[in-house]
Amino acid sequence: MVRDKRRIDPVTGKVRVPPAGEEPSGGGVHVDEADPGAAGSAAIGTASAELDALQAQLDERTGDLQRISAEYSNYRRRVERDRQLVIDVAKAQVTSQLLTVLDDIERAQEHGDLSGAFKVVADKLVAALHAQGLEPFGVVGEGFDPAVHEAVQHDTAADISEPTVTAVLRPGYRFGERVLRPAMVAVTDAEAAVVMFPDTETSPGADWDPEHRGPEQLQDE
Rank of each mutant, 00 (worst) to 15 (best):
Q93V: 09
R213V: 15
S73E: 14
A70N: 09
F137Y: 01
V139D: 11
V2P: 00
A190I: 05
G172N: 00
D103Q: 04
P18C: 07
D104Y: 04
E106M: 03
P146N: 07
G13A: 06
E80R: 08
A117M: 11
M184L: 14
A206V: 10
R16D: 00
V187A: 01
E191D: 13
T202Y: 09
R3I: 15
M1V: 10
R174I: 05
G172F: 00
G45M: 15
P146Y: 02
A131N: 03
S41E: 08
R81D: 14
I68S: 13
Q217L: 15
A193S: 05
V11H: 07
E110P: 02
V2I: 11
T200Y: 05
D199I: 10
L51K: 08
A147N: 14
D220I: 15
G21M: 08
G176W: 03
S69Y: 05
G40I: 11
P171A: 12
S25Y: 06
L125I: 10
G13T: 02
A158M: 10
E150K: 01
D207I: 04
D113F: 07
G133K: 03
D64K: 15
D209W: 04
H212E: 13
I68L: 13
R16F: 00
E142N: 04
A147T: 13
A157G: 07
V126G: 00
G26C: 09
A47P: 07
G37L: 13
T100F: 00
A39R: 08
A38I: 07
R181L: 08
D199T: 08
A38M: 12
M1G: 06
P24M: 08
L51C: 03
V139A: 14
P215A: 14
Q217H: 12
R81G: 07
A186P: 00
E80M: 07
G205M: 05
Q132N: 05
V101M: 09
M196I: 15
G63H: 02
K14F: 01
V179C: 04
V79K: 08
P10L: 12
T62K: 12
G214I: 06
L98Q: 05
